[in-house]
């Protein structure tokens, strides 16, 4: 009997959850502040007045071995050391000013800088891009799908234990 009562409780919870979710979807549909049911990342964002295209790992890979494109990893140091896009420059937002001194010789002003962090909507790449824009760099792309997508796609990875 207890099992039956437990199952009944779970069933009522489920029905409650579905009904309340439906109310939410309905209100969102009718609300002027409603958002689309499926999230689509914007194709580009503006950073300090510069248009920055948001690209995925497939597009980023096209630039991977091309001259004039430099990858910048803005994740935490331990994750950078575990694995990163080969040749990527380590530039985290926490101590970007100190690290920039080391990174500057590798970043030509005309280079296109492809920044990434973990995945969609971690804002570390954007923060670093904003700093670099102040430093006079003008060409950016953000690999918005992040390193997790790069890794999942089986693209080249380099690790470093420094």
């Amino acid at each position: 009997m207890k099992l039956l009562a437990g199952l009944r409780m779970c069933f009522i919870s489920l029905v409650m959850c579905i009904c309340l979710s439906s109310i939410g979807a309905l209100v969102n549909h009718m609300s002027p502040y409603g958002i689309p049911l499926k999230y689509e990342p914007p194709p580009e964002i503006g950073i300090n007045g510069i248009k920055v295209p948001l690209i995925d790992e497939g597009q980023a890979y096209k630039y991977y071995s091309q001259q004039g494109y430099v990858f910048i990893d803005s994740r935490h140091v331990e994750h950078f050391n575990e694995g990163h896009v080969p040749g990527a420059i380590f530039l985290p937002p926490e101590d970007v000013q100190e690290r920039f001194v080391e990174a500057q010789p590798f970043l030509m002003e005309n280079d296109t800088l492809i920044l990434y962090c973990y995945g969609p909507d971690c804002d570390m790449a954007e923060k670093v891009a904003a700093f670099l824009a102040q430093m006079g760099y003008k060409n950016f792309m953000i690999m918005v799908s992040g390193f997790s997508a790069w890794k999942s796609a089986g693209l080249p990875i380099e690790s470093s234990r420094r």
């Binding site: 959850c17 309340l20 939410g24 409603g34 958002i35 499926k38 995945g119």
Partner: peptide
Amino acid sequence: RNYMILPPGWTNFVAITLPWV
């Protein structure tokens, strides 16, 4: 989305329904 658990495409759906639950 900041939690990076759900695929980004699903995050709006959760944000629309979860508060009402």
